[in-house]
Design a protein around this nucleic acid. Sequence first.
DNA 1: CAGGCAATAT
DNA 2: GATATTGCCT
Length: 413
Amino acid sequence: MGSVAAEELNLDLRSSFVPKTITDFLRHLSANNNHPATLRDFLSRLEDELRKIHAFKRELPLSMLLLNDAISVLKVESQKCCRVARDSPPVLEEFIPLKKELGDQSEEEEEENDDDKDDNECRDKRNWMSSVQLWNNNTTTTTTNNNNNASDRKQLLHKLQTKKSEEGQSVAEDPFQTCSNRNGGRRAFMPFSRYSSSSSSVPVTTVGLGAASKEEKEESVRNRLSLLTPSVKEGCGSRGSRSSSNRAVSSSPPTAQPGLRATSLQQTARKQRRCWSPELHRRFVNALQKLGGSQAATPKQIRELMQVDGLTNDEVKSHLQKYRLHTRRVPAASSNQPVVVLGGLWMSQDQYNDSSKVSSSGSGSPQSPLHLAAGSRGGTSPTEGDSIEDDEDARSESYSWKSHMNKPGKVDV
DNA sequence: CAGGCAATAT
DNA sequence: GATATTGCCT
C-alpha cells in the first residue's frame, strides 16, 4: 500500500528536496517567485507525511518534530508568499503539542488511554509493523534510510534547530540517541539480541554500518541501549504490561554491560530468554493451525510459517512443548463440557476462512470479543490424536493457555 | 539433522 | 511455579 506512494515520495523528495535544506528550498523558491504551487504541493506532502507518521510519533519523535517544523516554516512562508487569503484551517494545531515529548523523554507521557486515539494509533502501528517485520529490527527497516538520509536529516535538523534556537528545548544532541532511547523503552518487537555469539569485536559505533549483518547491527543498537537506558522495563510479553499493544518488548538485561568478560563469555553463556510476546504467540498458534494442530506441526514448519526472523528452531520447539503440555491438560479435564464454555475463547479465529493471510494480525479486532459459533463437536473425531486444537485468544495481549474455566459466573450445562 | 522429552536454569 | 534453555536420546 504505502510502499508505492512512499517510493514516489521518496524519489520526489530526493530529487527536489533532500539535497537542500528548508532554507535553501525557500530561497530557491523565492528566487523563482512564481512557484507557489510547488510550495503548496510540497507542503501538502509534508502534511501527508506527518499524518502518516503520526501513529509513530512516539517512536519517531524527531521525525515528527522535523515535519512539524518544516511544515510550520513552510506555512509561514507560503502565506507570506501568496498572501491570497486562503481558507486553510489550522490543521497543524493538532500536532503542535509535540512539545513535551522532547522535554520528558525519560519516562512517561503515553499513559493516556484514549480509547479512540490510542486504539487507532495502535492499530495503525501494528499494521505497519506487521507489514514490515514482526519484531522490528529497527535497523532493518531504518537502515536503508539511515545510510542515505541520516546525514541529511541531521543537517536539516541542525538547521532547524539553529533557526529556532531560542525556542530552546533543543532536540537531543544525537537524533539516534533519542530514537534508540525510545526504542529501548517501548518498541514493539525487538529481536532480543543475544550476546556475542561469535563476534566480540562488534564495534559499538554508530548506526551507519553498511554491510554489517543484522545481528551485529542489532547488537550495536542494543548496546547503546543498555548504556542509555538505565532502567529498562522488564516487561515480557503479557506480564508486566497490560494493554496498549505497542510495548511488548523484550528488553535486554544488563548482562552485556557490566562484567562483560568480552572474550571469555561464550562458554557458559546461556541464551537470552526469548519472550513470547502475545503477538509472537499468536503467530505461533496461527502457524500451528495451518499445520494441522499442535500434534501434527513440527517445530521447523512452524518456524518457517511464522516468518519471524531471529526465531530459532529450538525456541519454537520449546514453545511447542510447553504448548502441548498446557493444551493437553485443559481440554481433557471434564468430559463433556462444551469447549466453548471452558474459556469462552476457544479458537474462533478464521482458521479456514482466511484464504491467504498468514500474518493478518487482525485479531486485535475490538469487534467480536467472543462469538462462539464453532462450539459443539459431537465427539472426538476418530482420525487423529488431537481433536481439540485450541487456540487462545491472543486477541489483544496476554495470551494464556490456561483457559480460566473458573469463571465467577455459574457455568452450568 | 530434526523431533520429542527430561533436566536444568531463571 | 511458570517459562525458557540445554542436553540427550531416537
